[in-house]
């Protein structure tokens, strides 16, 4: 008999329901393990190979393209309800490599590696010549805008004092000269109206996060700040199964507790 020819792996259509199921488990995995930036949604499955695994099961080796949504990583909204960041808002894509084990009909992520990159300035300006581009998050203007916005929010808040967690997106707008920022915040054990030394405030044991959008407009002799924050329901600390210890977490990500199964957004609180 002729020796078996052909690949040792099973070839599967990238749009096969089984491939798609594995890809969705993979994208869900990265979203549950993000603590900064934005949730991503599946855009395209680039490649898939299905390897037999001993003693049982199969491993899906996949390359996946994702797109950034408008939901912050700490936002408990299910990604299915999140909008994809549009080209005019300077979209961001993710390139991911995954290995997903399928055993007894269940998918389990063994390995995940993702890199994200914004669309090129040329491409954004091609579809929208006047759209502001993403700005570096550590630029002086961006940091100042986020800090001024949070100060404004806390000054008008009747509840907890909120600390900055991370600035997740920023754009410098030419006309009127302004800085648009989006950032995550966390509640502390201080009361906003009574804070004298913010350094003495501690994050709540039952972490409560919020997400703010703000515009700082430069004026002659001053600046205007408009900020809107949505405070999310508190997130209980839950133990979570981990993948292979050799598997890296997605770039720019660290492990955080799983969001609650029934998310609810409190707010938004508008200043």
């Amino acid at each position: 008999a002729p020796p078996a020819i052909g690949p040792a792996y099973r070839e599967l259509n990238c749009d096969d329901p089984e491939t798609e199921q594995a890809a969705l488990v993979a994208v869900d995995y990265i979203n549950k393990h993000l603590s900064r930036g934005y949730k991503h949604t599946l855009n395209q499955i680039d490649k898939v190979k299905v390897w037999p695994r001993r003693p049982m099961g199969e491993v899906f080796e996949m390359e996946i393209d994702t797109l950034e949504t408008t939901c912050h990583a700490l936002d408990p909204t299910p990604v299915v309800n999140c909008s994809v960041r549009q080209l005019t808002q300077h979209a961001v894509e993710g390139d991911c490599d995954f290995r997903v084990l399928k055993q007894d009909g269940q998918f389990h992520v063994l390995f995940a590696k993702c890199d994200s990159s914004p669309d090129s300035a040329e491409d954004v300006l091609k579809v929208c010549p006047d759209c502001p581009l993403l700005a570096p998050l550590n630029s002086t203007k961006v940091v100042h805008a986020a800090e001024a916005a949070l100060r404004t929010f806390n000054a008008h808040s009747n509840g907890s004092y909120f600390q900055l967690v991370d600035v997740s997106r920023a754009q410098l707008v030419p006309l009127p000269v302004s800085t648009y920022v989006e950032f995550a915040v966390a509640a502390t054990d201080c009361v906003a109206k009574e804070v004298t030394d913010p350094a003495k405030c501690n994050l709540l044991a039952e972490q409560q996060y919020g997400f703010c959008k703000a515009t700082l407009t430069e004026k002659v002799g001053g600046e205007d700040v408009a900020v809107t924050c949505a405070v999310f329901q508190t997130q209980p600390v839950l133990p979570q199964p981990q993948p292979d210890t050799n598997a890296p977490t997605p770039v720019g990500a660290s492990v955080v507790p799983a969001p609650p199964p029934a998310p609810m957004v409190v707010g938004p609180l508008v200043v």
Binding site: C14, Q44, I45, D46, K47, D65, A91, D123
Partner: peptide, 27 residues
């Protein structure tokens, strides 16, 4: 008369369509 033995052509598998569909837009 010497003839070559018949060679059974290996059935080449049809390459699976990858990459898959774009769900939103490509950047």
């Amino acid at each position: 008369k010497v003839v070559q033995p018949g060679v059974v052509a290996a059935v080449s598998p049809v390459a699976p369509p990858c990459p898959g569909r774009i769900r939103h837009f490509k950047i």
